[in-house]
Amino acid sequence: MNPLAEIVAITAVCVLSGCLGSLLGLGGGTFVVPILTLAFGLDMRLAIGASVISVVAGSAAASPRYLDEGFANLRVAVALEVATVSGAIAGALLAGHLSTRALYTVFGVVLAVSAVQMLRHRQDRDGLAVPDDPIADALSLHGTGTGTTVRDIRPYRVTRTATGLTMMTAAGAISGLLGIGSGAMKVPAMDLAMRLPIKVSTATSNLMIGVTGAASAVVYLQRGDVVPLLAGAVALGTVVGARIGSRLLAVVPAGALRVIFLVVLLIVSVQMLLRGLA
């Protein structure tokens, strides 16, 4: 394949990954790095450098709509960013000292764990008491958002902010290490631990991914791990895909998307693990 065809193909594939990443609150990087390395044979470190830029671009493209429509909780996002940015700095610095095979293995494990998270059936917790949380009270993190359907608007109370911060530190470290948004860890932390509605969690994750990605992007840009044309093609595709995804969030059935995503995640995870452990 000549470079022009390669750039066009990468941009096209990133439209799809950006759309899925925006819809599921994962950021496009979860798909971008495996695609660039496994399908296009690009160097892992350069793929991560491009991915981290696309993660920020995708977040900037999708988040305005989520903020305007009241899906994303800005206060929760900024509060949790203290943890994710700290983790992302540590992860990005560590990535420069790990071998490519180690990165493949870590990536494969993270994707497998993400798949397991998605397999877990989410229990209906309506009616269950939400424990009081002084941090959430002090920062006024509680809000109003959708429940199971778009029209199901109700107030929600945020809880276990300390647990959320701990989980977000780990998510940030993975994000910095692998150049992904780590939404697969952020969404469950907000949804399961902090009790935010699923669509609020997804939209808030999208918003947070941009700031976490920016912390990692600065390190990668400083270190010279970014190929501008590659990062540009990936970012453009992701921006277009994220804009499409943000329009679809309210109407696409989450169940069907989760099934498709799960299958893709498992296949890519096995491929990455095989490369890392071969």
């Binding site: 671009a57 988040s63 903020l67 009241g70 909780n73 206060r75 959708t146 778009v150 109407v251």
Partner: peptide
Amino acid sequence: AAPGAPEAGARQVALVLRIGGGLGA
């Protein structure tokens, strides 16, 4: 979708993200 009113500062942040994202792209 119109799930809820945007919170304080959300519209301003959205505008900044739109301008920065658009300029960068």
